[in-house]
């Protein structure tokens, strides 16, 4: 047998080590079972969105030309952007614009506010932002906006009325804001879908955490963009509470991984948030951060 000589050995070692150290992203991305999230730090939301989406392969990868895009920010409360109860209006308008540019036929933003919707849409500045960017935001106030939907893989929430625009869309993007929550400790991405169903109260009566996970068996966003530019540490979900500025946007295709990482911003163990644990165990995504690639980007 021909043995490799020293020169060949050195060459091979150099190549392998270069590949291993310089291109870790490539090797991990190739491993499709492993979730990747992109954590973008910065002060300019426009730049941050651009940087995050570039890493994800651009909007064109998610938005199909001529199809509808549905965005779901959290605009549940009467609150100013500084108060951090509603998703930042600049973030929403950036995404609406980008989706339009990527060829979306229309961008809709349906929301079922907890507070009076007019006051919430107005004070948060999101309605104005969406209008300006050329999207259409509306309140889920009438029965006609919902469709009874079965959740075959759910444990408790076997059926619910879900917003039709959330079900029938070419591209569903979740745009929650991370904040403390009196009922579930933290409200993150998965819990944001409570603003897309008609009967929230059922969830509270029947194991809220399980219902949140159950909901994610059917509502599957292609992308989650977590607003963690400001986070409300106390008195959530409405506030005004104690605020912190991590200046982060978290991008990911795995909703559970995005929530798990967001929990760490509040110095919480991801699995201490019950719905993250349940969703992980149900196989809806990866909540174990040791199995998630966290790519940090400066923008």
């Amino acid at each position: 047998m021909k043995s490799i000589d020293r020169r060949q050995f050195l060459k091979a070692t150099a190549v392998i080590s270069t590949v291993a150290t310089v291109l870790p992203d490539v090797s991990n991305a190739a491993d499709s079972s492993k979730a990747v999230i992109y954590v973008v730090h910065g002060r300019d939301i426009t730049k941050m969105v651009a940087a995050g989406m570039e890493k994800l392969g651009g909007w064109a990868k998610f938005v199909k030309k001529g199809q509808k895009v549905t965005l779901k920010p959290n605009v549940a409360w009467i609150s100013k952007p500084e108060q951090g109860a509603d998703t930042d209006p600049v973030l929403v308008s950036e995404c609406v614009k980008a989706c339009k540019t990527a060829g979306a036929s229309e961008v809709v933003v349906p929301e079922k506010s907890v507070n009076d919707w007019k006051q919430s849409f107005g004070s948060s500045g999101v309605l104005e932002a969406v209008n300006r960017a050329g999207g259409r935001m509306y309140a889920l106030t009438e029965d006609k906006y919902f469709r009874k939907t079965d959740f075959p893989d759910a444990k408790i929430l076997k059926q619910a009325d879900v917003a039709i625009d959330v079900l029938d869309t070419g591209c569903l993007v979740n745009m929650p804001i991370a904040k403390s929550h009196s009922g579930t400790t933290l409200t993150l991405g998965m819990k944001n879908w409570m603003g897309s169903v008609k009967d929230r109260q059922f969830w509270h009566r029947n194991k809220l955490h399980q219902c949140i996970a159950d909901c994610c068996t059917v509502i599957k966003p292609v992308l989650t963009i977590m607003d963690a530019t400001r986070i409300m540490l106390t008195k959530g979900p409405r506030g005004p509470g104690e605020m912190e500025r991590p200046d982060l946007l978290i991008f990911g295709t795995d909703p559970v991984a995005v929530d798990a990482y967001s929990a760490t911003l509040f110095k919480k163990e991801p699995f201490s948030i019950e719905y993250i644990k349940i969703a992980h165990d149900m196989g809806l995504g990866c909540g174990d951060l040791s199995h998630v690639d966290v790519v940090k980007i400066e923008a």
């Binding site: 907890v114 929550h181 009196s182 009922g183 579930t184 009566r205 029947n206 194991k207 809220l208 409405r238």
Partner: peptide, 12 residues
Amino acid sequence: GQSCMVCDEYCP
């Protein structure tokens, strides 16, 4: 023994 606290959540 449910985790609820909607009252706290809503109270302005």
